[in-house]
């Protein structure tokens, strides 16, 4: 009966007296033991959805349950079975690793002996045993993020919410964190993960929910989403952006989807790769546009995302720093 771990039906939330619709009829179902990736551009409503599901934000309308418990009416019980690791490492940097984990354990009302034992276990598991009694000021970004995740796991919650767990991390730390998350999933933890990185969703999530403007716009396994896109992405490289533009005009009618520019290149999603590629080459040759390169590839989730939201997924570092400095209560509310 409670095979459903997380369920949301028609969640709505507006900010600034209704001017900003952060959630606009958001639906979600996560089965027990599943890893679901919530994917969307900045401001799509990902963080607001997580906040509503983790009881820190009361939705204006709609309902949500965690293992059958209502997030508003049974909030106190829900808080005992969830773990939350935030977009920004929300650990206390003046405390040591051990002090942070013990504080969270005590505030979860876990037995004292249990907290001590669990703290040791987690530090070991996350490769932080040696750093446990050091102040967080000496931790690297990756270490903080691991401790943040460890803090979410002190009470061994069956349901884990990870809000952009690797945003801003270097590739190596990201890989390390992915391995940790995969380990948790093997242990049976249900995970709802928000991310802006398709690579992350592709690797970790069995099911992907794409949201934009507070609504679900696509839902499926990574393979299903890619299949919906059309079979092949045809990429042509020319000598200049101007030529790329001309080329796109010549070939636009070969696909129902609009071509996508990137510098000197044009990408087109087509049903059948090779015959369309031959046609493209014929037309560009006739139009005297030199073709420097041509590739055919399977669509990536990035292509899916672009097609669905009209926005590329790359997060420029500027956007990341901006949202981390605008971390005030208002900033946090409205940044997504």
């Amino acid at each position: 009966m409670t095979d459903i771990a997380v369920e949301a039906r028609g969640l709505k939330k507006t900010f600034r007296k209704g001017q900003v619709k952060a959630l606009d009829g958001f639906d979600l179902t996560v089965r027990r033991g599943q890893v679901v990736g919530l994917l969307g551009p900045n401001g799509a409503g990902k963080t607001t959805a997580v906040r509503a599901l983790t009881t820190t934000l009361r939705p204006d309308a709609g309902t949500a349950t965690i293992l059958g418990l209502d997030v508003v009416k049974d909030a106190a019980k829900v808080r005992r079975i969830i773990g939350l690791a935030g977009q920004f490492a929300t650990v206390d940097e003046n405390l040591t690793g051990i002090e942070n984990l013990e504080m969270i354990g005590r505030l979860n009302h876990l037995p004292h002996g249990f907290v001590k034992q669990r703290t040791e276990e987690l530090l070991e598991q996350f490769g932080l045993s040696d750093a446990g009694s050091r102040s967080l000021k000496t931790y690297s970004g990756g270490m903080r993020r691991r401790l943040d995740l460890a803090a979410a796991l002190v009470s061994s919650p069956p349901i884990l919410f990870l809000d952009e767990p690797t945003t801003g991390l270097d590739p190596q730390s990201r890989l390390g964190l992915w391995e940790v998350i995969e380990g948790l999933v093997r242990g049976g933890t249900t995970v709802l993960l928000t991310t802006q990185y398709l690579e992350e969703a592709d690797r970790l999530a069995e099911d992907i929910v794409v949201i934009d403007h507070g609504k679900v716009i696509a839902h499926g396994t990574p393979a299903e989403l890619k299949a919906d896109m059309g079979a092949t992405v045809l990429a042509i490289t020319t000598d200049s952006p101007e030529q790329a533009r001309e080329a796109s005009q010549l070939i636009a009618d070969l696909s129902p989807k609009a071509p996508h520019f990137d510098g000197n290149s044009v990408e087109l999603t087509v049903e059948e790769g090779p015959p369309k590629a031959a046609e493209v080459l014929r037309r560009l040759d006739a139009g005297s546009i030199p073709v420097v390169g041509l590739t055919l590839r399977e669509p990536s989730l990035d292509d899916v995302f672009l097609a669905l939201t009209g926005k590329p997924t790359e997060v420029d570092t500027e956007a990341v720093t901006q949202s981390s400095t605008a971390r005030g209560r208002r900033g946090a509310k409205e940044s997504s």
Binding site: R51, T54, A76, G86, Q87, T90
Partner: peptide, 12 residues
């Protein structure tokens, strides 16, 4: 600002 209160709010 640091988000610590957000974590506290999700605790029992």
């Amino acid at each position: 600002q640091t988000g610590l209160l957000e974590r506290f709010r999700a605790l029992p």
